[in-house]
Nucleic acid binder design. Sequence first.
DNA 1: AAATATATCGAGGGGGCCTCGACTTAGCAA
DNA 2: TTGCTAAGTCGAGGCCCCCTCGATATATTT
Lengths: 202, 202
Amino acid sequence: MSAANMPQRRMRADARRNYERVLAEAEVAFRERGTEASLEEIARRAGVSIGTLYGHFPTRQALLEAMLHESIDRLVATAEELLTHPSPGEALARWAGATGAHMSAYRGLASSLLSSLKDESSPLHRACQQMTAAGERLLDRARSAGLVRAEASAADMFALVNAAAWVREQVPAEQGDRLLAFMIDGLRPVTAETRRPADPGP
Amino acid sequence: MSAANMPQRRMRADARRNYERVLAEAEVAFRERGTEASLEEIARRAGVSIGTLYGHFPTRQALLEAMLHESIDRLVATAEELLTHPSPGEALARWAGATGAHMSAYRGLASSLLSSLKDESSPLHRACQQMTAAGERLLDRARSAGLVRAEASAADMFALVNAAAWVREQVPAEQGDRLLAFMIDGLRPVTAETRRPADPGP
DNA sequence: AAATATATCGAGGGGGCCTCGACTTAGCAA
DNA sequence: TTGCTAAGTCGAGGCCCCCTCGATATATTT
């Protein structure tokens, strides 16, 4: 991860100031109103014209990406640390919980992220890949410990965490926690005595 | 269910015709563009003014509800039939599959439905309740067979199916199926040998 | 201080949501 | 048939949003 996102060549002082202001207001707006918050309002609150906002962030996703950058780095670092946790299962669940909680702080984010995983042109694509990769190592460790079935991929894990975050957006927190736990449990191998409820019919 | 939705007192012929036209175009538009499709375009395609559309369907949700009515009745009937299926587990999975598949035919529908479950003023509320109730009987039967853990409620089941439908909207069908299966598997009781991966940390 | 690359600005074209008063017409009754 | 009137239809207009682009301003460099 090179510093490929902050300005290549130093920005003019006023530009830098405006960039930061917009970013700060975006964080507030996205948190309060979700990822569909009005960009015109963000510009207004930042005391900047709509044209200036677009000058710095050509698309909504670019703005989102810039806003999430730090926190995603932090999540990836957390995953790294959890690799040394004594219980592979708990490490996995902890990471899923932390990730889901972060995502569901911004209504609509899970949706943007999941769809960016397979869209290489999206500014969010890198972020998704990093998160998937971070999850993969935890997942593999849990699988080695016999806690995860063979056919569950890192992409599956990412999708499940996104789904959990999505569901959390519209359900009481307590239920949201329970549902995430169910989903992670669903990754367990199937044993002889606890047969799967069934295969979906044709 | 009573015929509580079709006109109380007979509609005028032209009104009836327009009502049907709008409904037909809405079905197409929602299927192609998702539940956020433009109402003005639906009116245009139906050859009706925007005012007329609003006359018949005061809100987007009312239009959605009218459009979904039949198919939801069909789903509920399917659940009824599945109650006599020899395998409670397979019955549950089949119903989840059918429901999820239907929902994911309209991008954004899962979102509308899940949020209508707890919003009594929504025109979709009744539909959600019916579906939850239908699922509950199948869930209880599976639980009696030891296939579902005690703490999983019908609302949980409904939320999971919605989450699966949501995920299916943005992921290859094959992966979508797998993820739904994982989620339903996550409802199984936890056995001694297959410990849950873990509890989410604080 | 002048030159110039950088930034900012905001009107304007395109769309969507929804309302409401003016207008039409289906269907009934005389 | 012919009116009459309740029921239905229309669409301009107010408000908001997205995004672009030429005109304008200013930070930095020489």
